[in-house]
Write a protein that binds this DNA or RNA. Structure first.
Lengths: 145, 145
DNA sequence: CGAAACTATTTGATGTATCAAAGTTTCCGT
DNA sequence: ACGGAAACTTTGATACATCAAATAGTTTCG
């Protein structure tokens, strides 16, 4: 049956779509001589929006493993895009703040990222985007149950 | 605007949905004491359907990098699920064939994988699944353009 | 107070993603 | 037959995914 077949390949389609989008974004970063990965950008972006977040909160925001976040932060500190200082109230954690350099970077990337989304969603109606989001959220809920 | 926001998070939603689905599948593999990863299963499955395929064809079928496929095949050979013999016609490549053990594995996994898809798609109508597929394919096309 | 439970983070191990470069082997045009 | 283009695959390097276990600091409560 046709629908059987579509179900079979749907997850493949989802997989490809996110890969292609990541490629598109990564390509735009390279073209603009930005030496961060998409994932690193996500970390920076999350810290920008919630400056006093713990690493776990960041990880949850961008849907990544704590371990991955730890390692990405390490790279961002090396790149001088994040600054790590001791946390007075809780010595298990650190104060992590984005550097002025990172602030500039984020500002420059904002229109680029917006353009990427626009490119990827060209021709899709608003209600289709909403629908896509809703259906995927159903799948997510199903997988978590 | 609401739609702006939805666009912003859509790719996040896509990302999460594929991750959750992979978790669901991986979990089912562990529960059934199957010592292969989803990706390794995809490779085996592809070889099963196209026994005389080149590695590149396999890679294209499952949408993975040639390099990744090379390494996954190496692991599958170690696990005795794939057999590698020299190719008489073309010495650049190998004859890769799934072992009887792999055939059994694939047969056992078939209902499990089907159940996983059913679980993940519970409550979605056939036309919604089709729609999802179509919309994602549009995004893929946009990213490739 | 002090042990147990909990929280935040790191580390280790294994696997995949991605791009670039290299290694072979085959094919094709002259 | 020869040289270069093309094809199939591997290797290297770096980064992220995932799960489990280890660290280290904090809180709770008897």
């Amino acid at each position: 049956m046709a629908i059987e077949k579509t179900s079979d390949i749907l997850f493949n389609t989802i997989d490809i779509s996110i890969k292609k989008y990541r490629q598109l974004v990564q390509q735009s970063l390279v073209e603009n001589d930005v030496d961060v990965t998409i994932d690193q950008w996500m970390v920076l972006s999350a810290f920008n929006e919630t400056p006093d977040a713990t690493q776990q909160q960041i990880a949850n925001t961008i849907n990544k493993d704590y371990a991955s976040v730890t390692r990405m932060i390490e790279l961002l500190v090396q790149k001088k895009l994040l600054k790590r200082t001791t946390h007075n109230q809780d010595r298990r954690r650190f104060n992590l703040s984005i550097t002025p350099q990172a602030t500039t970077l984020l500002k420059n990337l904002q229109p680029i990222m917006k353009a990427n989304r626009k490119t990827a969603l060209k021709g899709l109606k608003n209600n289709e985007i909403d629908q896509l989001n809703d259906l995927l959220n159903k799948i997510i809920a199903n997988c978590e149950a």
